[in-house]
Computed example of a mutant assay.
Amino acid sequence: MLEPVTLAHVAQEAGVSPSTVSRILNGTANVTPEKRARVEAVIARLNFRPNPQAQALANGRSLSIGVITPSLNSTFYGEALAGVEAVLNDTPYHPLVISGQWRPEREQEALDILLLRRVDALILMGGILDDAILERVAQRVPLVAMGRDVRGLSENCIVMDNAGGMRVIVTHLLHLGHRRFAYLTGAERQQDAVERRDAFIATLEQAGVTVPDALIESGDYTEEGGRLAAERLLDSGHSFTALCCANDQMALGARLTLYRRGIRVPEDVSLTGFDDVITSSLMTPPLTTVRQAIYDMGEVAARAALNLLRGERVSMQVFTPELIVRESTHPPGGARRLTRPSEVSL
């Protein structure tokens, strides 16, 4: 196996010091044109390739951008991560991704690990760490937040108009004639979950519709959480003709519960989500939802991090939601009495 060519080999062949070769490579050498040409000729002849990591460490950089996501198996965050990766593919930087697992202590641990790894910048996707913690971190390393507005760092945030998105979903259902609603909310410490739930309640109140507390359940933004939360709604004894979910993943889990209880979508219950992840159009029936430009948001977050690394100013970017109407919503056919598991014939 051939021995790899090192900077010392180039220096010896060119008759200069290793430090001179290094300075020529990074563009800071004050040498004669003849000496520069001689070194560059040796570099070309030996096919020398500088080690980017070694160069980065010499310059105090790691060439990595840390990304903290609540979940690694989320279709939403997976699509956003793909956007981040696409932008970084054309740069010397690579993403270093860790999951906070929807828990503040794990999120803090992920943050500590990335800082110890000396990442050059951080991208936080959602998350539940306090704003004050993130403000302190931003004083040490460039930080971009996606999906939340961090107090004191608003210019570094990429957000979705969550209230606007929920308003268009609820208004769509109201126009169809629905007046009996149930709701699955996300993790209570997630800013977007709070904004969507508040908009759901406010939009219905403006229409003169009140939702009983028993018909608002938390599904923690996961498919399994949505499945279990939908079971609790059906066991509450309250009837409803429309079930709004704060994200598509919970809607997928709720759809399974409705199917197992013999409840038809949309004939008995209209079902909606939020996000328009890639699987939503493939559900049975395809899901009515609000489209977020998830991939684009990941791209914008990565570009913002790169801009901050170059010392450039960034500004908050707000993405506007788009209502996507599919076959999971329909005018109410009358409040069907919802069955309990013991009432379903096998």
Rank of each mutant, 00 (worst) to 15 (best):
R179H: 12
Y77E: 10
S345T: 11
V265G: 08
A246H: 02
E231T: 05
I216F: 14
E3K: 08
P52H: 03
P285F: 13
V137I: 11
P104H: 11
G66S: 15
L124N: 11
L228A: 09
S281R: 01
D130Q: 07
Q53W: 07
G83P: 12
E155K: 05
G15A: 04
P212F: 12
E188V: 11
Y183L: 08
A145T: 03
V84K: 07
T289V: 04
A138W: 15
I128S: 02
T272E: 04
I324F: 09
P266H: 11
E135K: 15
R49L: 02
Y93N: 03
R197W: 14
F48A: 05
S62L: 10
N307A: 04
I123L: 12
T69K: 12
R340F: 03
M316H: 13
L228M: 14
S270K: 05
I216Y: 14
R167F: 02
G66T: 13
L215T: 04
L88F: 14
N247I: 09
G66H: 08
T28P: 08
L338G: 02
L174C: 01
R303D: 03
L46S: 00
R38L: 12
I169A: 11
A301G: 05
R303M: 00
T339Q: 02
V87S: 06
I68K: 07
N30I: 12
M146T: 14
A58I: 09
S270A: 11
M250W: 04
S17P: 11
R49K: 03
N156I: 12
P70Y: 06
S270W: 07
A37D: 07
A202C: 14
P104C: 09
A138Y: 13
E188M: 06
I158Y: 15
L287M: 00
D198E: 15
L129E: 13
T171Y: 14
R313F: 04
V144P: 08
P212S: 11
A302V: 09
V5M: 03
E3G: 14
A254I: 02
N162L: 06
I65L: 11
L25S: 06
G152W: 12
V39Q: 05
L204D: 07
L115E: 15
D161M: 04
A305N: 13
G177Q: 00
E13N: 01
I133G: 02
G164D: 02
E79C: 08
N59W: 15
L306Y: 06
I68D: 11
G311Q: 09
N73S: 03
A14K: 00
R106D: 10
T257E: 05
L57R: 01
R337F: 08
